[in-house]
């Protein structure tokens, strides 16, 4: 059974049709890339999947459950996690507190009031910071990090609750070549733990880490398949050549 199925998604903003019957199917432990020219609907599709937008029409099922109209919090509790396109770490908080904030999001409020899980979560916070090479700066405010490091922190925060599906919207945006390479290294080990949907303009990066690709154009799916199938697809080549 697919982990995520988005079928017939239509999203209309006023006179603009951002999604026009788009579809996406992601299997467990699959790294799935979502690519397409600017304005093709990638980010809108991510938002409809994550709950930031409710589709005008269509259906999203996750782990066998219809979540089309579920709130972001309900989706997070079902095992979905999102990294926004624009970095949204909490700059005034320390790195440690940013990750703790992400980790404790599904804890009952009564337990939070008495800090009942703080001790138990400490090791997980440190492990996450260690994994993303940020542990030495755990006590510093997130605002002190470089842009690339803030992106890593945000990926660490999205991964901390151990989601079944991680949605990454342009994780390497604004990064140097070296930072992109490291990001690829940091993402590779999570494949054993969760599935990934990634929107990215860097096609080399996508090619290196993804199993399958879906190409959007004009809010609809142009093609979907393995990397090789997409590379050989005449429809995809035509779109990219047309815009080149």
């Amino acid at each position: 059974m697919a982990l995520l199925e988005a079928r017939g998604l239509i999203k209309i903003f006023g006179k603009l049709t951002a999604l026009n019957g788009a579809e996406l199917v992601v299997q467990p432990n699959e790294f799935h890339g979502l690519i397409g020219p600017n304005g093709s609907g990638k980010s809108t599709m991510m938002k409809c999947i994550a709950g930031a937008e409710v589709p005008t029409e269509g259906r999203v099922t996750f782990d066998g459950r219809d979540i089309t109209t579920a709130s972001p919090a309900e989706r997070a509790r079902a095992g979905m996690s999102l990294k926004f396109q624009i970095t949204s770490v909490l700059p005034a908080l320390t790195l440690y507190d940013n990750v703790l904030l992400a980790l404790q999001g599904q804890t009952a409020l009564s337990k939070l009031m008495f800090s009942r899980t703080r001790g138990a979560l400490h090791d997980k916070v440190m492990a996450m910071l260690e994994q993303f090479r940020l542990v030495d700066r755990a006590g510093e405010p997130a605002a002190s990090l470089s842009h690339g490091q803030q992106q890593w922190l945000e990926i660490a925060m999205a991964l901390a609750p151990e989601p079944k599906l991680l949605l990454l919207d342009e994780p390497t945006g604004g990064m140097s070549l070296e930072e992109r390479r490291v990001t690829g290294e940091l993402l590779a080990p999570i494949k054993a733990r969760c599935s990934l949907v990634i929107v990215e303009h860097d096609l080399d990066f996508i090619r290196d880490i993804c199993d399958r690709l879906t190409v959007l154009d004009g809010g609809a799916v142009l093609d979907t398949g393995t990397i090789e199938q997409i590379q050989a697809s005449p429809k995809v080549q035509e779109v990219y050549l047309r815009r080149a």
Binding site: A73, S81, P91, G105, Q106, S115, P161
Partner: peptide
């Protein structure tokens, strides 16, 4: 407390913490 951290998250970026599962 940890609830205080959730409040800080609420104050700093309410939309973001909803995506962590908080019932804001």
């Amino acid at each position: 407390s940890q609830f205080g951290l959730a409040l800080a998250g609420l104050r700093e970026n309410e939309q973001r913490i909803a995506f962590f599962g908080y019932k804001v």
